[in-house]
C-alpha cells in the first residue's frame, strides 16, 4: 500500500459518502444519474465476485472495503430508484447504458490476461468503470448545470482514479508491478473527467456554480 493508493481509496469512499449524504439530506436525487450509479454497482459486484464465491472471513480491511463499496452502491441505487424515485430525473438521464455495457463486455472477452470467468468479469468491471461516469456527465450537459455538492462528488470520484495512476507509477518504479489493463482503462477514465476538473477548479473552488455551456 502506498500513499497514492491510500488517498485514492479514501477519495473514492468520500465520493460515495458525499453522494449518499446529498441524496439522504436533501431527500432528492435531482441532478444524479441513476444509470451511472447502477453501472458502478455492477462494477463492484463483478469485480468483487470472490466475496460471494467463498466465505469471507473479514480478516482484513480489503474485504471490509469491498463490502462497503458493494453495499453503499446498492443502497444508493435503492434510494434513487425506489425511495426517492419521484425526484429521479429520468428524462435527462437518457444516455443508453447498453452502449457502454455491451462494448465493455465484448472488449473484456477480446482483451484480457486470462480467458476464465473470474478474470473476464474483473476485466469487464475495469472497462465498465472507465466509462460508467458518462451518463452522469451527459445528464449535467443536458440539464446545463450541476449542484455544488454533486460537483464535489464528481471531483472526489474523478480524483480517486487519478490518484490510482500515481499509485501505478509508484508501483512500476518501486515494485516493478504493472497491470496494463487497469492502467489503460484508468487513464481513459481520468481523461473523461478533464473537462469537469477544469470547470471545477476554475468555478466551484471560487464558490461559483457549474453552468454549461461554460
Amino acid at each position: 500500500m502506498n500513499i497514492f493508493r491510500l488517498f485514492g481509496d479514501l477519495s473514492h469512499l468520500a465520493a460515495i459518502a458525499i453522494l449518499l449524504l446529498k441524496i439522504w439530506k436533501t431527500r432528492s436525487c435531482a441532478g444524479v444519474s441513476g444509470k451511472t450509479q447502477l453501472l458502478f454497482a455492477v462494477c463492484f459486484i463483478t469485480r468483487y465476485i470472490d466475496l460471494f464465491l467463498h466465505f469471507v472471513s473479514l480478516y482484513n480491511t480489503e474485504k471490509v472495503m469491498k463490502l462497503i463499496y458493494i453495499s453503499a452502491s446498492v443502497f444508493t441505487c435503492y434510494l434513487i430508484f425506489f425511495k426517492f424515485k419521484a425526484t429521479y430525473d429520468g428524462n435527462h438521464d437518457s444516455m443508453r447504458a447498453e452502449f457502454l455495457i455491451v462494448p465493455a463486455a465484448g472488449l473484456a472477452c477480446l482483451i484480457n490476461t486470462k480467458f476464465d470467468a473470474i478474470e473476464i468479469l474483473w476485466t469487464f468491471s475495469i472497462y465498465l468503470e472507465a466509462v460508467a461516469i458518462l451518463p452522469q456527465l451527459f445528464l449535467i450537459s443536458k440539464t446545463g448545470e450541476a449542484e455544488t455538492i454533486t460537483s464535489h462528488y464528481l471531483f472526489a470520484q474523478g480524483s480517486y482514479r487519478a490518484l490510482y495512476i500515481l499509485n501505478w507509477i509508484y508501483r512500476y518504479h518501486y515494485e516493478s508491478h504493472v497491470d496494463t489493463i487497469a492502467i489503460v482503462a484508468g487513464v481513459v477514465q481520468t481523461i473523461l473527467y478533464c473537462d469537469f476538473f477544469y470547470l471545477y477548479i476554475t468555478k466551484v473552488v471560487k464558490g461559483q456554480k457549474i453552468v454549461l455551456p461554460a
Partner: peptide, 10 residues
Amino acid sequence: SFPKGEHDEL
C-alpha cells in the same frame, strides 16, 4: 496475501 498474478487492488 494474493497469489501472484491476482489483482491486488480495489
